[in-house]
Design a protein around this nucleic acid. Structure first.
Lengths: 128, 128
DNA sequence: TAAAAATACTCCATAGGTATTTTAT
DNA sequence: ATAAAATACCTATGGAGTATTTTTA
């Protein structure tokens, strides 16, 4: 099955043009990364990388796949970022309650409290 | 680590509103799917699904994650589709050679061969 | 000859399956 | 009482590491 790991490793290879360095970047051994790249090529039925012993170059198909992989990885990061944001205790819809006597009638439901009022407020945070 | 599999299983749950049916859809047992969903929620630090024994509903965060997951899965499929297309023996840039004697000088590099000429052609496909 | 990727081999983590339990209606 | 998800437990697959080999410039 096509996996994110494979895409991550492949993008690392694209960026470094070097299996060893790419492996270091993603914190695995060079053989581990090689295997994942191999599985990816097998999975897609494509040769993604031209190996020339001294240097590495992506095939045209490899370039296209890399572009798409990068996009997918970005969206994955966005998803994670959204989750972190949503998980934060200060996120979500917040209902803010103020002791009525501190807020002049005219300013209820507005942002018209004096500084001293604010200093004496009871802040009631309710996660939506 | 956040995985493609987790997103697939989660989207299946969204679509079926039922762990068991979702599991069947993705061809794994219900416990296997439950575990992956659990891992996903743990990974994201979010509750994605409200379990109410008789029914299931996504949380607001779950809905948002599902939307993003669907988008990612679609791009993943696009990537695979592209790969299949690129892997096809008839894809890529094709250079077509014709025995000169069969093609009138005037029509070289054009599509002006007679039917009989075409029938006698040597077709030379060279994958770019 | 040297640098880099591929291969061989071993080990452990984890994904998945079956059986069972828990929970809420 | 029943339907559905969670948990427990076991097994097997495969992913990762180390050591080594192959390849080509």
């Amino acid at each position: 099955m096509l996996t994110f790991k494979q895409l991550r490793y492949f993008v690392a290879v694209q960026q470094h043009g070097h299996f060893g360095n790419a492996a270091e970047e993603v914190c695995v051994s060079q053989p581990a990364l090689s295997m994942q790249i191999r599985d990816l090529e097998k999975e897609l039925g494509l040769c993604l990388i031209e190996r020339n012993a001294r240097s590495i170059r992506l095939t045209p198909e490899g370039e296209e796949i890399a572009k798409r992989a990068n996009q997918i990885l970005r969206e994955m990061q966005d998803l994670k970022a959204y989750a972190e944001h949503a998980a934060s205790p200060l996120s979500g819809t917040i209902r803010l309650g103020v002791i009525p006597s501190l807020a002049p009638t005219s300013s209820r439901n507005c942002c018209q409290l004096s500084q001293s009022s604010i200093l004496h407020c009871s802040w009631i945070f309710a996660k939506h």
